[in-house]
Design a protein around this nucleic acid. Sequence first.
DNA 1: ATATAGAGACAGACCTGTCTGTGTAGGAGA
DNA 2: TCTCCTACACAGACAGGTCTGTCTCTATAT
Lengths: 192, 192
Amino acid sequence: MNQISPRNSPEASPARRRLLDTATRLFYELGIHAAGIDRIIAEAGVAKATFYKHFPSKDELVVAYIEEQDRLGREAVATLPKQPPRESIAAIMGRISEAVVAGGWRGCPFLNAAAEYPDPTSPVRRAIDARRVWYHNSLRKLLAEDGDPAPSVTASLLVALSDGLLESAYLDDPEKIPALVQEGVDRLLERR
Amino acid sequence: MNQISPRNSPEASPARRRLLDTATRLFYELGIHAAGIDRIIAEAGVAKATFYKHFPSKDELVVAYIEEQDRLGREAVATLPKQPPRESIAAIMGRISEAVVAGGWRGCPFLNAAAEYPDPTSPVRRAIDARRVWYHNSLRKLLAEDGDPAPSVTASLLVALSDGLLESAYLDDPEKIPALVQEGVDRLLERR
DNA sequence: ATATAGAGACAGACCTGTCTGTGTAGGAGA
DNA sequence: TCTCCTACACAGACAGGTCTGTCTCTATAT
């Protein structure tokens, strides 16, 4: 038996792919606790034994969900065109508007998950932490390049503004978000 | 039987008071779905029948929890000293720092609840909406008094900053919040 | 005497996770 | 080409626990 045959690669399994896609949709739409395993496997068309072969527990599925959302976000940022730092920041923040005007926005997946996982040492919370550290650092580096005298402070404010506007898009009026993103970034960035 | 006797007032029942206090603590610490009725009544020392006499369902208890948190916030703002609008805004935003440095902060109760209630027509979401409308309007009026040329936009940005900093206090470093509140308000308010 | 509330059994549904059994597709060897 | 073998996945029963909500019975206090 070939232990490193392609079939052992996680991505090579269609069942695993269907499970993660279905879980992503249901976790986001219903909330994590409200989306049961029985429903996930039924809508994915996967047997329960197959599910527990790919994921040791529901929490591991949640971690995979969080990590994949994180990875997709990082890839989207990585493929942004090379441009001056201030334009890069505007482009990163502009992704908020894109995510939100598409419709079906139900809040930031990471904040929603954090609301359901109080234990900061849980694997789910660690995955969320990793995402937040990456996001803050990405902005901080661009701000430093831009000559911001306190790039870490400004980055924290931009992170807070991002989180707040993503929640506002869920709970208030999504159509106002694009203008608020632009205005908020303008006001938070140091004028020169 | 006197239908409007004092004993019919909701606040007159110690059992109801214990239920709401215990539910408030458990909903906030564990999350709403994760806090079961059995545990709430056990820790409150209340019989199940008594619980269902005071609250027709768990969701009604959740609504009472949200509405009470909302009421407490409004009372705290109402008792702030009369002062110029910009100082009032600073005082309202300063409540974020107070809430957070006390320790045990687990995120904004309203945002956490919204994460668990996807249906925007549910009573819980309506209670959250009412809170957000009040908060936005309070800031907008003060900004208009202050002569802000676009008080609604600025108010939306301050609401977003509030939400984002409350989440940051939960997921990042709470000790940095007071400085970020001050700095964020400074940058968002129109300079004159 | 009546209102209030404690204790707890119970129903029916749903939760996660384990288990057995069946079907199928593809590669290896004759 | 035919057959065997192995990996994979589907179907679903089952266990043990928890969920909300209803019920009966008992105790207390005014």
